[in-house]
């Protein structure tokens, strides 16, 4: 009983000198894995205006609008649930998922992506990035 009371003390003390799990986020960024679904991106040239994506979207995050004499989807990141259904259903592979991690905006309006913005690739992460693999080495998890 006494051992069970005192042992946590030493385990706790031992852990105080281990490496932390947390990433110092604003200073260091974690690189998403390859398959990570950040948001949807449109390739306007490939779009054939078939409306498959707007029909399948469960939350009506996609809407057809007129852009340069062509009907293309407009994207509402505030409604999107990142379920990947539209990417799968698109017959001409015009939609794809991109690695965008931070897409917070100051207004609700900023979350609506008109076609021209919708087709822009996200900003590349410029700060120091860590991959999960490097992080694991530091944490002493998966040695390799």
């Amino acid at each position: 009983m006494v051992v069970d009371i005192i042992r946590p003390f030493f385990i706790g003390l031992y852990h105080a000198f281990k490496r932390t799990f947390t990433v110092k986020h604003p200073f260091v960024r974690l690189k998403p894995t390859e398959r990570y679904r950040g948001r949807v991106m449109l390739n306007i040239d490939r779009c054939i205006s078939c409306r498959s994506c707007t029909n399948i979207c469960p939350n009506m995050a996609l809407e057809m609008v007129k852009f340069e004499k062509k009907l293309v989807p407009q994207y509402d990141a505030g409604r999107c649930c990142l379920c990947n259904l539209c990417v799968e259903v698109c017959p001409s592979m015009a939609l794809s998922m991109v690695h965008e991690v931070e897409f917070s905006e100051y207004t609700r309006k900023g979350l609506i992506y008109p076609p021209d913005r919708f087709s822009q690739p996200p900003k590349p992460i410029t700060e120091k990035t860590l991959t999960v693999k490097i992080l694991d080495k530091k944490r002493g998890v998966a040695h390799g």
Binding site: D76, I112, P114
Partner: peptide, 17 residues
Amino acid sequence: DTPQEKLEEKIKRAGGQ
């Protein structure tokens, strides 16, 4: 019906054409 705003309104809010 699912709250789907009018198209024009949405474009206007987004500041598009």
